[in-house]
Design a protein around this nucleic acid. Structure first.
Lengths: 349, 349
DNA sequence: ATGAAAGCGCTAACAC
DNA sequence: GTGTTAGCGCTTTCAT
């Protein structure tokens, strides 16, 4: 195992000081071209690798950004990570990605670990369990920039980027109405989570706007953040529940693709025709939505763009950090309806 | 923004030296209980957070492990990450997760970045593009422990953990044979990648073992690591290709679930009955395999266990690092067949 | 049981 | 254009 080359090794070789070498490698303007060249040459020859840790200690900044995802196995989060990376790599930052597994306890642990590692900032989406945000406040108290995305703790003073879930709910339901549906049910997520509240609000407002009567029994709230298999089952159960109702709905807007997929499986089994007897729209445009028969209409979220924006927020914050008053900014992204067979009644329109 | 508390802040407060404080926090045996208590109290009061960077610089170790995944949006990799974390968190390591996006160039970049950050080890799966392994050799040359998982560069001297893909291929095809299939096609992955070679070998050996004739035309090799949508399309095209053959196969063993999903969609469209006319088995047991109609029989890989094993390899390596000769170890995990309707001909067995 | 002192490798203010 | 010096915060050997 070779000994690592340091700045002073190079300095010695060239009979200069480490500072000169440091500056030369930094392409400092006041270093002569000849020394720069010499340094570069030796550095290469010695296979010099800068010691980031030393530099971080000295500069008080690690060039690492912590990213917290509730779970990394969804295209949703993977794509956001890619979006973040796209932006920050040019600025020399590395990402350290952590999963909270939707648990507040792990979320706390990860935040502590990240702070201990001295990250330069944290970009996070809050776990479904989380209702108390003290651990997030801690981040800001330490003077570490915080950016939230998608699931943002209300009441948290931080830059954030979210999809317009209200609009997502609205256009989903508006589409169903335009397809001639009049009795629209809703699989809602837990209402303590902002995004699910917003989707529900969109649902309600769209119905109101088109004078569609609202029936309390058609709204079923449940935990839509879970193991996919479980949500699938849940979707089946909730569909069963709707079918048992005296007045059966003719459409379902599900705040989760997986619940909608379960519904489709269940309806297929019961030989209930989709979309003619019951039309469906899901949320988040998961890969499986294009696989199921009939294809599930869904709301696509611009995840990569979301990652981009989160990264930009972070960079902004870094650059305005000193001095002036911090006023949190919220970026609202616009979702898009992806239409498939599950909702397409007017086939010739 | 508060100033951070350091060891000497605490030391000053207690009229002792930083060394004592350091030792006290380390629970060093030769520090009196009274000072320990005092230090702990003040540390807590001052909300002391150890500066990991300083410690890393001093100790020459960062307690960070770099993990490289080709892409993080597959359950496969997410689950492996979880498996790794489960093991190393107790040892005080953090993970820094990077995506190579299947590109050799990014793979190199990431490795450089990780080395620069001074990670204590790297756990990686190689990108599909990669055929030259110099950048991996660099890791070992630096004396940084390297563990490979799933896609391991042949010829690379490193600890590794892989699924027994040969067996995966074998049991998949054996199952088809037992269901009465006699003309079994294979969607093969690129043969420069070990796992696809092995799956193909399993296919060939199982046929040989049961005296099933082999037809070259029934094997179609293609790039099975790509955007899921693309593989889906590919699956359709390959299926079309098989149907055009003078002698049409009665089963397909696909080295990728996604290609098999495409096949199912295509066959459904053409009203060709599954599994009676054509039976199917996929590979990796993706979520979508349980969603499609009929359900796709597939090979499940014990991903979390794979992560666990990779982590253990890393820890072993850390502990035997000094001195003795390094002999790479390979762990072989056993895959499992998950049977669904796409292959179940003998429905009453 | 504690202190003194040196140093991990790099950077930056200040010199000249 | 380059050197000097000091220090980031922590650990650890050698003292006592």
């Amino acid at each position: 195992m070779k000994k690592k080359t340091t700045l002073s090794d190079i300095a010695k070789k060239l009979n200069v000081t480490p500072s000169t070498v440091s500056r030369a490698l930094d392409d400092h303007p006041r270093i002569s071209d000849s020394t720069k060249k010499a340094v570069l040459k030796i550095a290469h020859q010695f296979n010099y690798q800068p010691n980031n840790i030393a530099s971080a200690l000295r500069k008080g900044k690690s060039n690492i950004i912590g990213v917290i995802v509730p779970t990394s196995d969804r295209q949703f989060f993977a794509s956001i990570i890619r979006g973040i990376e796209e932006i920050v790599r040019n600025e020399g930052y590395s990402l350290i990605i952590c999963q909270s597994d939707e648990q507040t306890s792990k979320e706390k642990e990860k935040i502590d670990a990240l702070l201990q590692i001295q990250v330069d900032g944290i970009i996070a989406s809050v776990a479904k369990e989380t209702t108390d945000y003290d651990h997030f406040k801690k981040i800001r108290n330490r003077g570490v920039p915080l950016v939230l995305y998608d699931r943002i703790g209300e009441s948290l003073e931080a830059n954030a980027v979210v999809i317009n879930d209200y609009m997502g709910g609205y256009i989903a339901v508006e589409h169903l109405i335009q397809q001639g549906c009049k009795k629209i049910a809703h699989f809602a997520g837990q209402q303590h989570i902002g995004i699910y509240q917003d989707r529900m609000r969109g649902y309600l407002e769209a119905m109101k706007a088109y004078n569609i009567p609202f029936n309390e029994e058609w709204v079923i709230e449940s935990d839509l953040i879970d193991d996919t298999q479980k949500i699938l089952e849940l979707g089946k159960e909730m569909t069963q529940q709707l079918l048992n109702l005296p007045e059966r709905p003719d459409a379902i807007f599900s705040a989760s693709d997986f619940a909608a997929l379960g519904a489709i499986q269940f309806l297929n089994e019961k030989k209930i025709s989709i979309p003619d007897e019951i039309a469906l729209v899901g949320y988040s445009n998961d890969f499986a939505s294009s696989i199921i028969e009939p294809g599930l209409t869904s709301i696509d979220q611009y995840t990569k763009q979301m990652g981009n924006m989160a990264a930009k927020h972070f960079l902004n914050q870094i650059n305005t950090k000193s001095g002036e008053q911090f006023t949190p900014e919220l970026t609202l992204l616009t979702p898009e309806l992806v239409i498939r067979a599950s909702s397409l009644r007017n086939k010739h329109v």
